[in-house]
Design a protein around this nucleic acid. Structure first.
Lengths: 197, 197
DNA sequence: CACGTTAGGTACCGATCGGTAACATCGTCA
DNA sequence: TGACGATGTTACCGATCGGTACCTAACGTG
């Protein structure tokens, strides 16, 4: 983030825009937010946005990668909490997801929302979101392999269905809805494919 | 649908608009489609739309109920194919879902998409979508009960997570993606909570 | 001091958005 | 024939969309 030399100084316009976009894009969806609202919320002006980013789509792409950093930070936390124990790592993530999905203004995963927001499969914003989703699947396949699943890809796919289901169901049903049980379901699915611990 | 007296006559403007909205809203999302595009695609004019529907939101609400009729029609099919056998009914629906999600232009469930399209929980279109989703859950709870699940609501919630996961994952991953396994996962979940048949 | 970088301010562009007013046209039925 | 309801035609409204041109103010560095 362009590493300000003095930490007490006002952040750059680009950083303020990124922060503003992160808030607004996540809460309201990318297409629903206008650039005018972004710059107003950031306390800067429109030319500053277009000096730092090529276009709204460019800013949206940056937003998605920024957002996904938060996901990997979460994964880093469960890894640190349960080193060398992929089983516990996965379950810790799913239990945390069940908790988060009960927040009254839960908005799920920004990548998933972006994919539904852009039906055109060739749109650059959508392609970036899909690329980042594939990375998540790769990570899950790896963990499923370490957990001794008979078919790691099959287990990973089942976990993805539960994750994505929780992302959207957390928005569709008032808490505590079906998303509150995503941890339970993940346990059942893992046990069925790896056997009891 | 206002039942035209002569089946060979040109359908009413309202019906043409409903059909056009069904196509466009489903393929591109409600907010992404303009009323101008709807009426052009229907071969009618804008005043005809506003004579038959209060507003775009009103048309969108009608679209959602129309769309959900297709869902219940599907359910009626699997019920007819497996009468008195809720287990087989559920699995037939999930296997069909796995197949449909592999279509190259799959766009998931219009209700789910509408909920993500309208982050404001008080928006009438979103409330209608949420209401229809609750009906689906009620139906699943009933089936889970008939299947002898130890906790019918828990099984229904798990199946909802898988369903909704398949709806969105079918769009996020090129086929055959994780959504292709939603039938397998449903089998595991049901077996774990009802025992083998 | 002179300079280039980074920023803000203002005003604007063409396009599209949802929605409406006023009037013309058609087919149907009494 | 005459009246009526449904539809088409045209033009328009104010608001918002993403994006840009032009100029000015503050700043650190040589």
């Amino acid at each position: 983030m362009s590493t300000p030399p003095s930490p007490s100084r006002r952040p750059t316009a680009a950083d303020r825009i990124r922060q503003s976009a992160r808030d607004l894009f996540y809460r309201q969806g990318i297409r629903a937010v206008g650039v005018e609202e972004i710059v107003q919320n950031a306390g800067v002006t429109k030319p500053s946005l277009y000096r730092a980013f090529h276009s709204k789509d460019g800013l949206a792409t940056v937003f998605l990668t920024d957002y996904q950093h938060c996901f990997w930070d979460r994964i880093a936390l469960v890894r640190a909490a349960h080193p060398e124990d992929p089983h516990a790592q996965i379950l810790a993530y799913f239990d945390g997801l069940a908790e988060r999905s009960a927040a009254p203004d839960y908005r799920g995963c920004a990548l998933t929302n972006a994919i539904l927001d852009y039906p055109d499969r060739t749109h650059p914003v959508r392609q970036e979101a899909a690329r980042l989703k594939h990375e998540v699947r790769d990570w899950l396949v790896e963990r499923a392999h370490q957990m001794g699943a008979t078919d790691p890809e099959r287990l990973a796919d089942g976990l993805i269905l539960l994750m994505e289901g929780a992302y959207v169901v957390g928005q569709a049903f008032p808490p505590p809805g079906p998303a509150a049980r995503v941890g339970d379901c993940a346990r059942l699915l893992i046990e069925a494919q790896c056997g009891p611990r």
